[in-house]
């Protein structure tokens, strides 16, 4: 007597009958199809929700403009803003927007990579050694609560007003969340994992690669996420302050000549870029960390 436990309720085998493999496969396949259809429906609803959300925000913007809560001279119509964005983007790399984007993107990418590598290395060192941790703790605590932009005037003195000055600031801003999270991750590695590595006769480099890094990867990634949004904000801030090139400088220029619409278009654009980066990070996270309990819990 074979009854197959069948949570989706498809193809229930009558008691007393043997199920052939084909019947089983059919049952499973139709269950799979149903699940994919459900998933597709859910994704469609998500997309519709996003559209509705932004549409609603645009409507709200216009309403507030009409009523006067948002004074019309400082808040252009949303359609104008979006239209201006398309125009600027349409100019391609001959136009100012994409050039400035490229400059800012380059600065940010370089700074973020440097901060990540340095941050992880320092974090590993600090996390691993109780002495290093104790020695550097008060210093780190003090330094990391300093707003990075405070260093801009000093950086200008030391490195002029080019890429180097900007890099100095942004790296400084972005490195601390990574250091802290990496160190914390290392500190909280369950001792059993070290035992596993030793028992498996891994050399210490292999041990780091195969056991340590995957274990602390989720914590590091969450540090990277914090650092990413912070460094973006600081990069734009540095653009604004050291004004030679970049997105922030461009938007400031627009405002300087009274071109508010283009300024808003720039803000919208920056938001899109930030969102894009966020999505990229989420995708990377999913690829690398789908196995970790924290990830699964967050995306239950």
């Amino acid at each position: 007597m074979n009854t197959v436990p069948n949570p989706t309720g498809a193809a229930q085998a009558p008691a007393g009958q043997d199920l052939s493999t084909t019947t089983l496969l059919t049952a499973w396949r139709s269950a799979d199809r149903r699940r994919t259809a459900q998933k597709r429906k859910r994704r469609a609803t998500d997309v519709a929700l996003v559209i509705a959300s932004f549409a609603g925000a645009a409507v709200l913007w216009e309403l507030l403009r009409l009523v006067g809560v948002l004074p019309q001279q400082f808040f252009p119509p949303m359609l104008d803003i979006v239209g201006r964005l398309f125009t600027e983007l349409g100019a391609g790399f001959g136009g100012k927007l994409l050039v400035a984007t490229g400059q800012t993107a380059l600065t940010w990418l370089l700074a973020f990579m440097i901060a990540s590598v340095l941050g992880i290395v320092i974090g590993l060192f600090v996390g691993n050694s109780v002495y290093a941790s104790a020695t550097l703790a008060p210093l780190l605590r003090f330094v990391r609560s300093t707003p990075a932009v405070a260093f801009v005037p000093a950086a200008i003195l030391v490195a002029g007003i080019g890429l180097q000055a900007k890099l100095l600031i942004v790296v400084f801003a972005g490195i601390w969340p990574i250091v802290l999270n990496t160190a914390a991750g290392v500190r909280h590695v369950p001792p059993q994992y070290r035992d596993v590595a030793t028992a498996s006769r891994l050399s210490s480099l292999e041990g780091v690669r195969q056991v340590l890094l995957p274990t602390i990867a989720p914590t590091i990634v969450s540090g990277l996420r914090v650092s990413m949004s912070l460094t973006l904000a600081v990069t734009v801030g540095v653009d604004l302050l050291i004004g030679a090139n970049g997105l922030g400088a461009l938007i400031n220029q627009y405002r300087g000549v009274g071109n508010i619409t283009s300024s808003y278009a720039g803000i919208l654009w920056a938001g899109l870029l930030g969102t894009l980066l966020n999505l990229v990070l989420l995708a990377v996270e999913r690829k690398l960390l789908f196995w970790s309990p924290e990830y699964r819990r967050k995306n239950a």
């Binding site: 509705a52 959300s53 400082f74 904000a233 600081v234 922030g248």
Partner: peptide
């Protein structure tokens, strides 16, 4: 929450410093 979440996430992802120029105007 579900309705406003996309817009809030967008605003959260926008580098905060970039609002300073228009804010000065306003």
């Amino acid at each position: 929450q579900r309705l406003v979440r996309p817009v809030f996430d967008f605003l959260r992802a926008t580098p905060a410093t970039i609002i300073i120029p228009v804010a000065i105007a306003f």
